[in-house]
Design a protein around this nucleic acid. Structure first.
Lengths: 226, 226
DNA sequence: GTCTATAAACAGATAGAC
DNA sequence: GTCTATCTGTTTATAGAC
């Protein structure tokens, strides 16, 4: 469980951050006491002030941990894309890359349990911004959104940074994120007891279809009725 | 401001519920003290216990108020639809009705300030369900989702209660709700200072386009590439 | 019904032993 | 670095005056 390469102090730091992220995500910042966090991390209350200067510092550390985690997941994929786009990607290849990205997003955001804590943490920051939001926005949101916009341009032709593509990419991300946010309502309405491989496949099927439809619709050959 | 037809007690009750909804939405249930609520409502702390039995009772009352508010907005529109659908609606008329519904959803969820509190309140309930969620789910979510599914069937042909339409309607709602949830990130990324009529129009334009594209894509005549 | 005073529990921060 | 004891302020709930 504990990494032997880390000093005891770093182990405590890490344990506190992990516990804080989980609790802040599920119960909220105000709903979580420092005593709870310390207990969950197997540390004592004083260690929070010692290592992070207080509860606020722990929130910032949790945000940094989120950025590092998400960059670890999205970073390599986006880096490869960067190179491919610069090398010139044809529309069909770009469309397939969008599919891959969408699949990964659904796989992580909807199906992975740890995504719940992260999404909820970010959600609360979005609703009630603290300096922690800036890190997440600059470190994750902007790079990801910008890269998808570039991919959209390659797949579709519309300039990546004009208004419509940016908003469209928003809607593509939003439809996925909503399955996590509205999970409780979704489960009840679908009669699902959880989101396993089969349910995730259904969601990927629908979101992928939407992506293709919007992409095709935005082209000239087959515009939807207005 | 205060309704003269209401008894003084009811005025206090109402003021407390309104203040509680606003504060629970913006700062969270745990982040809001009963003193704050009482102060914002121009009442005293004791009145919360007296009228609602405690802070938990006030949350339930706020949930009921949300249900009543949303039913007041969505109810008439959905009622008229019910009749129209039963009378048999052709596909093109159904599509136009979906447009109207989408426009109203964006107009309320994205542009109206009071929608922020409501959406955030519901979001927190979805993340950490209490009995208050059941009221909202049964009173608002199910009726709205079910009605849109029926409309989808009329516009598209796919049976309203099968898996794909229900998921697709989810994505349609999700893309709109995300503009409210991710508002801070959206504003920054778009370089907007707020969402006024112009910005709302851009959002309606994109979401409406998506709706049409998905609707057309799901038909045989013009299926997107797979 | 409204409001005040008070109680009992809990919060986060910190000083100091080890 | 870790942990305990304690300080200070705040929380919700409630008893009782008006």
């Amino acid at each position: 469980m504990a990494d032997p390469h880390l000093s005891p102090a770093d182990q405590t730091r890490m344990a506190l951050v992990i516990a804080a992220l989980r609790l802040f995500g599920s119960k909220g910042f105000d709903g979580t006491s420092t005593r709870e966090i310390a207990a969950a991390a197997g540390a004592n209350v004083g260690s929070i002030s010692y290592h992070f200067g207080g509860k606020d510092g722990l929130r910032m550390a949790a945000a940094d941990h989120i950025v590092a985690t998400l960059q670890g997941i999205a970073g390599p994929a986006l880096g490869n894309l960067e190179a491919a786009i610069d090398a010139g990607l044809d529309a069909e290849a770009a469309r397939r890359q969008l599919h891959v990205l969408l699949d990964r997003m659904v796989g992580f955001i909807v199906a992975r349990p740890e995504a719940g804590e992260i999404v909820q943490f970010v959600l609360r920051e979005l609703n009630q911004p603290t300096p922690a939001l800036d890190r997440i926005y600059e470190g994750v949101f902007v790079p990801v959104h910008r890269q998808i916009c570039k991919l959209w341009e390659a797949a579709h032709g519309e300039p990546a940074e004009s208004v419509r593509p940016r908003l469209t990419v928003f809607t593509l991300i939003g439809q996925v994120v909503y399955f996590r946010i509205g999970r409780q309502a979704g489960l009840r309405r679908m009669g699902w007891s959880g989101i396993g491989p089969d349910e995730a496949a259904s969601i990927i099927d629908v979101t992928r279809f939407n992506l293709d439809a919007i992409l095709e619709g935005r082209k000239d050959g087959c515009s939807p009725g207005r």
